[in-house]
């Protein structure tokens, strides 16, 4: 099943500059694996171990996957996955 994955500027070095790439799979985790197979290296920028990186936001059809099922979120044909690095910081480390 084909889904569109939108890539933020800072990760386009992994996609040859492309703003969107095609992915496939029944869950977000599978889509990320399919994107990794054609754009090696990108997965490690999205995941840390078995989880999404804390400061990477991923949305499926405009819903933050943290409010869905995270990497287990179901994805179907025609869905749109958006990746956005969080804008965050602050005066002390945490």
């Amino acid at each position: 099943m084909a889904v569109e994955v939108r890539i933020p500027t800072i990760l386009r070095t992994y996609t040859g500059g492309a703003k969107t790439v095609d992915g496939s799979g029944g869950t977000l985790a599978e889509v990320i694996d399919s994107v990794e197979s054609s754009n090696p290296g990108i997965k490690s920028r999205l995941l840390e171990g078995e989880d999404l990186r804390r400061f990477i936001n991923v949305y499926v059809n405009d819903e933050d996957v943290r409010f869905l099922s995270g990497l287990d979120t179901t994805v179907t044909d025609g869905d749109v996955v958006v990746v956005l690095p969080a804008v965050a910081g602050g005066q002390t480390a945490r």
Binding site: P8, T9, I10, F55, P85, A86, V87, A88, G89, G90, Q91, T92, A93, R94
Partner: peptide, 25 residues
């Protein structure tokens, strides 16, 4: 422009700010 305030320290990027900066332009 991406702005934020520091309310107790100087207006200089912290280590956290630098590590999380994702918009090089």
């Amino acid at each position: 422009v991406i702005y934020h305030s520091h309310t107790a320290t100087a207006a200089y990027p912290s280590r956290t700010d630098i590590g999380l900066a994702a918009e090089p332009d």
